[in-house]
Computed example of a mutant assay.
Amino acid sequence: MSEETCDIHDVTRAASDLVAFGCSIGAMHLYDGFARMQFSHVVSTYVNEIIQAVDEGILSAIQGIQEIREEYTDLSSKVLFYAQNSAGVLAGAIQF
Score class of each variant (00 low, 15 high):
residue 3 E to F: 05
residue 3 E to T: 04
residue 4 E to M: 04
residue 4 E to D: 11
residue 5 T to K: 05
residue 5 T to D: 09
residue 7 D to C: 12
residue 8 I to F: 00
residue 9 H to V: 08
residue 9 H to I: 01
residue 9 H to Y: 12
residue 12 T to N: 01
residue 12 T to S: 10
residue 13 R to H: 03
residue 13 R to V: 02
residue 14 A to S: 13
residue 16 S to Y: 05
residue 16 S to E: 10
residue 16 S to A: 10
residue 17 D to H: 06
residue 17 D to G: 08
residue 18 L to H: 05
residue 18 L to G: 07
residue 18 L to F: 09
residue 18 L to S: 02
residue 19 V to H: 00
residue 19 V to T: 05
residue 21 F to A: 10
residue 22 G to K: 04
residue 22 G to M: 07
residue 22 G to Y: 04
residue 24 S to K: 15
residue 25 I to D: 00
residue 26 G to T: 07
residue 27 A to C: 10
residue 28 M to T: 07
residue 30 L to S: 01
residue 30 L to F: 09
residue 31 Y to W: 03
residue 32 D to G: 13
residue 33 G to P: 11
residue 33 G to W: 03
residue 33 G to M: 09
residue 35 A to S: 05
residue 35 A to N: 12
residue 36 R to T: 07
residue 36 R to W: 02
residue 37 M to P: 11
residue 37 M to I: 04
residue 37 M to R: 14
residue 37 M to H: 09
residue 37 M to Q: 15
residue 38 Q to L: 12
residue 41 H to Y: 07
residue 41 H to K: 10
residue 42 V to Q: 14
residue 44 S to V: 10
residue 45 T to K: 14
residue 45 T to W: 04
residue 46 Y to L: 09
residue 47 V to R: 00
residue 48 N to T: 05
residue 50 I to T: 11
residue 51 I to L: 00
residue 51 I to T: 10
residue 52 Q to H: 13
residue 55 D to F: 00
residue 56 E to V: 04
residue 57 G to M: 03
residue 57 G to Y: 03
residue 57 G to T: 01
residue 57 G to V: 01
residue 58 I to N: 12
residue 59 L to Q: 01
residue 59 L to C: 00
residue 59 L to N: 00
residue 59 L to F: 06
residue 59 L to E: 01
residue 61 A to S: 11
residue 61 A to F: 00
residue 61 A to L: 04
residue 61 A to D: 03
residue 62 I to L: 11
residue 63 Q to A: 14
residue 63 Q to N: 06
residue 64 G to A: 04
residue 64 G to D: 02
residue 65 I to F: 00
residue 65 I to W: 00
residue 66 Q to G: 08
residue 67 E to H: 15
residue 70 E to I: 15
residue 70 E to M: 15
residue 70 E to A: 13
residue 70 E to Q: 15
residue 73 T to A: 08
residue 75 L to T: 08
residue 75 L to W: 03
residue 76 S to N: 09
residue 76 S to P: 02
residue 76 S to E: 06
residue 78 K to A: 00
residue 79 V to G: 07
residue 79 V to N: 05
residue 79 V to A: 03
residue 79 V to Y: 04
residue 80 L to S: 06
residue 81 F to W: 12
residue 83 A to L: 12
residue 84 Q to H: 11
residue 85 N to M: 12
residue 87 A to L: 14
residue 88 G to H: 13
residue 88 G to I: 13
residue 90 L to V: 11
